[in-house]
Amino acid sequence: MAAGGLPDPGGGLSAAPGPAAPGPRRRLLAWFTRRPETEAWALLAPGTVWMLVFFAIPVVVMCGYSFMPRGTYGGVDPGFTLEAYARFLHPVYLKILERTFVVAIVCTALCALTGYPVAYAITRSGKWRTLLLFLVVLPFWTSFLVRTFAMIFLMRDTGLINTWLLRLGIIHQPLTMLYTPFAVLLGLVYGYLPYMILPIYASLEKLDPSLLEAAEVLGARPAARFRRVTLPLSAPGLIAGSLLVFIPALGSFLTSDLLGGAKGLLVGNLVQNQFSTARNWPFGSAASLILMTLVLIAVLIYLRLRPAGADGRRGGVLS
C-alpha cells in the first residue's frame, strides 16, 4: 500500500482475520483512526473506482477515437486525423446541434414553468403531500422506453387523443401530433418533469413560513412576497432542477427517435447512428465530445448568471 495512496478497503477488510486473532484487526483499526482522512478515502473508493472504470476511461478512449481514421467495418484504424471534427462543421450537423440546444432549452423552460407551480402546490398540500410526492415519482416505476411507446399510442392519428377529439366533435380531421417537434418536446417534458419538481420542492419545503409573514408585515403583498422572498430562496432548487433537465435533454436520443420525424434529429441520434448503422466511430466520438464540451460551457455560463443580489435588486442601500 503506497503512502498517501488509496487504501484497498476490499482486500484490506477481507484479509482482516476474525475475532480469534485480534492483533491484525486492531492494527488495521488503529491505522484508520490514526489518520482520519484515510477513512474518507476508503468511503470514496468504491464510487471512484466505478466512475474511473465506466466513465473516465471510456471518455479518454473516446477522445482518442475521435482523432483516428474510421475503420471500414466500424472501429478505428491507427493514425491521426482531424477529419471527424472538420466534418462536424458542415452546416447539416451545425443545424442539428442548434436544434438540439433549442429543444433542450425549451424543454427546460417548459419543465420549470410547469414544475414550479406543482412543487409549490405540493409544499402547501398538507396531508396530501406524501401522496402527491409519490405520484410525482410514480412514472419511474415503468421504463422510459415503455412510457415513450405509450405516448405514440396517445398521439398517433388513430390514437386515444384524436379518437376522443373526433368523437366529441371538437375536430373533424385527426391532428398530426406524432413525428413533430411538438411531440418530441411533449415527450421530453413528460420524461424530465419529476427531475425539475423534486429539487424545487426540496428548496420550497425548507422555506421558513415566518419569512413570508415578516415580509407581509413589512408591507409585501402576495406578488411581492413571491418575487422577493419565495423565488430567490427557492432559486437553488430551480437551478438544480434546470441542470438535471437540461443536461440529459441535450443528450437525449430515444424520445426524438421514437416521437420525432426525420427532420427532428438531435445530436444524440447522430451519435447513436454513427456507432450503429453508419459505423463511423470517430465521427460519433467527436460529436459526443463536442456536445460534452458545449454542455460544460453552457452550465458554467448558467451558474455565473445567478444574480448576486438574489432578489433582483442589486447594490447597497447605504452609499
Partner: peptide
C-alpha cells in the same frame, strides 16, 4: 413585528433587510 426566530431574510444583507419595509 419582531419574530421569535428573527425571520431575517437570509438572502439579503443587513441594510437590504432593514430597507425591505421602506421599499414596499
Amino acid at each position: 413585528m419582531v419574530f421569535q426566530n428573527y425571520a431575517l431574510f437570509p438572502h439579503l444583507s443587513v441594510e437590504r433587510n432593514v430597507a425591505f419595509g421602506l421599499e414596499q
